[in-house]
Design a binder for these strands. Structure first.
Lengths: 161, 161
DNA sequence: CCATGTTATATAACGTGTTATGAATTGATC
DNA sequence: GATCAATTCATAACACGTTATATAACATGG
């Protein structure tokens, strides 16, 4: 059956990018499911931001992820619930709420950094390797590549196994 | 403020593609808002599929868009409500529900094809023109390009205006 | 022909993004 | 110092994707 969105080219580029992104996240989820904590792949960027940049206010976190503030507020609530993150009112400005990794959050990030993120990165790199040329062609190659072998079948031996 | 998702490269490619896709759809929405019918940009691919392929059962529609069946079922309900689409039980197999454009749906598609889709296509092509090289670099160029000038500022004179 | 398995769609619940808006705090101006 | 604007976060409502599951219709084998 014809893939209409692919056929429409630039006209449906937005839909197409979203679709590929969702599939990549779903594929990555399978690799993340091995970790101790049950957490969706979409929550990891927030943890990674705190890991890279240190404690941040909600609004700063939103900026660093290019998301809206309400979206970040909700994610933070979820992560607080899971005890991966801590949120305390700032002293000097009581409107601000500083978010930081808890010890448990640090542990999760450290484990992920060591054991899972390198695998995801390497699998995605494998998927995208040798891509060149026009964007639409590269996207088609990614779609075909994922259909042929999802990320978890692209694990290289020796990569942080 | 550092864009963490961009910095993380292949590791966050899924989040990044979704994010760019959402922005493209939001930008396209502005161009579509000029039409008679208030409809989200994400619904147009379904109409385009029916226009290209003719009447389809719900499951076939899902296949042609690479979406899941429940998602398509919901969109169809919405479009039926707007009288853009008609859904009737198939005679030979009463489990199947054939979906087709109504006269109003055809009119909308025709107007869009003539007046808006070419503009979107041309604006996106403008955004992506001269892109080459590694995927991550092209994505960065798209992000920067959209930030500098959203789609509605990339309308070429003379394109189905 | 009936029982059983398969297929097509519907529905419910959830995840995660958005916009719009409200409430609390801060800052600035008269 | 009181008032008014701006900033920060929270909340509600919506959009649209997913998975899991129910229901109805079809198909097949005894």
């Amino acid at each position: 059956m014809e893939d209409v969105i692919r056929s429409l080219g630039y006209l449906c580029l937005g839909s197409r990018l979203k679709r590929i992104g969702e599939q990549l996240q779903a594929d990555a989820q399978q690799l993340l499911d091995g970790l101790e904590v049950p957490l969706q792949s979409s929550q990891y960027p927030l943890l990674a931001a705190l890991d890279r940049l240190g404690p941040l206010a909600v609004g700063e976190l939103a900026q660093s992820l290019r998301l809206t503030q309400p979206g970040v507020t909700r994610s933070v609530s979820l992560l607080v619930e899971l005890e991966l993150v801590e949120a305390v009112q700032s002293d000097d400005d009581q409107r601000r709420k500083m978010v930081s990794l808890t010890a448990k959050g640090h542990r999760l990030v450290d484990v992920a950094k060591r054991s899972v993120w390198p695998r995801i990165e390497s699998a995605v790199a494998d998927l995208c390797q040798d891509l060149s040329g026009p964007l639409l062609d590269q996207l088609a190659a990614i779609e075909d590549g994922l259909a042929a072998a999802p990320l978890d079948r692209r694990l290289k031996k020796g990569v942080a196994q």
